[in-house]
Amino acid sequence: MIRAGIDIIASIAAGFYTTGRHLFVRPFTESYPEYKRPLPARSRARIILTRDPEGRERCVACYLCSGVCPVNCISMQAAEDSRGRRYAAWFRINFGRCIYCGLCEQACPTSAIQLTPDFEHIRRDLLDMVFEKQDLLVDHCGKDPDYDFYQHAGVVTGLAGKGDHISENAPVNTRTNMP
């Protein structure tokens, strides 16, 4: 019993020693905003819409990001542009609702929607947190510098016809019976 009492006191003393020692350890708190830690490129904060390597909008308004968004903060309307490419006539993200889960980025088949490390985009007015397409579009490819969805899609646009895309054969002649 005395042993047990000594054990108890010793273990409590060990706890006090541990916490007491911390008093003399330099805090490793990073003082934001005096010091801003460089964040990894895949940190999830403000969402952007990137462009493909040719500088065209990547977003094809497929509604996958808005479909997967758990808080329904993305809305858009798809349309067809003069070159036959599907694009977003308007695209809106309500950052007041966004929880920065990154599911939209995972769902995006064209690498258009990407999350960036920039988390400092708080606004005083809630309506200013609603970003339209022009606020979201950037002039670079983001984290995926090479991918061009339309090079793989196989749909005819003003830029490429049938068989002009990656890993596509020329259109077949359906009028011949030659094997």
């Binding site: 008093l23 350890v25 805090p27 490793f28 708190t29």
Partner: peptide, 13 residues
């Protein structure tokens, strides 16, 4: 402040 230092941070500053 002390709790902060016990937990290796600064506390209110």
């Amino acid at each position: 402040k002390l709790l902060g230092r016990f937990q290796v941070r600064y506390g209110p500053n």
